[in-house]
Write a protein that binds this DNA or RNA. Structure first.
Length: 137
DNA sequence: GCCAACGTTGGC
DNA sequence: GCCAACGTTGGC
């Protein structure tokens, strides 16, 4: 069981869309490092759902229900997608600004590698972010 | 809307 | 295989 964080632009695919539709292909990833992370995902892994651009906060959690398979939206056939399912809403969104101020989270790719759209989250960070959602500072 | 970071492409 | 030019992402 592993933990991840995936980014989406709310203008393109929002948490509201995910809540309404429940099950989706996580397609459109065109970066090898992000694609490698997709390939490392297993069924039942959990992913934070992060709104980039205008919002910059973690808003929910999705669960992996199908491992990496070819992304038909990629004409080159090189990239993959996974299938995810709505899992839960966060009690309170956790903004990037809070993640950045927390020393225990400063190693996350969310902070250090802002352009990466799919990244692993270690268990301690996963639990801490959930705690920050339950009990905001 | 701007710009920094960084990934990709293509000429050599 | 190097690197300049270019495109894209995402934070601010």
């Amino acid at each position: 069981m592993a933990y991840w964080l995936v980014k989406s632009e709310p203008e393109t695919w929002s948490w509201h869309d995910q809540t309404t539709q429940k099950v989706t292909h996580w397609d459109g990833v065109r970066n090898y490092q992000a694609a490698n992370n997709l390939k490392a995902m297993n069924v039942n892994d959990l992913c934070f759902f992060y709104h980039s651009c205008s919002e910059r906060q973690i808003v929910g959690i999705v669960k992996v229900i199908k491992t990496a398979h070819p992304d038909p939206s990629d004409p080159t056939g090189r990239f993959v997608m996974v299938d995810v399912e709505w899992h839960k809403n966060l009690k309170n969104p956790v903004p990037l600004s809070i993640v950045k101020t927390h020393p225990a989270l400063s190693h996350l790719a969310l902070v250090k590698q802002s352009r990466l759209s799919v990244m692993p989250i270690d268990q301690a960070s996963w639990e801490l972010i959930n705690e920050l959602s339950e009990n905001p500072l």
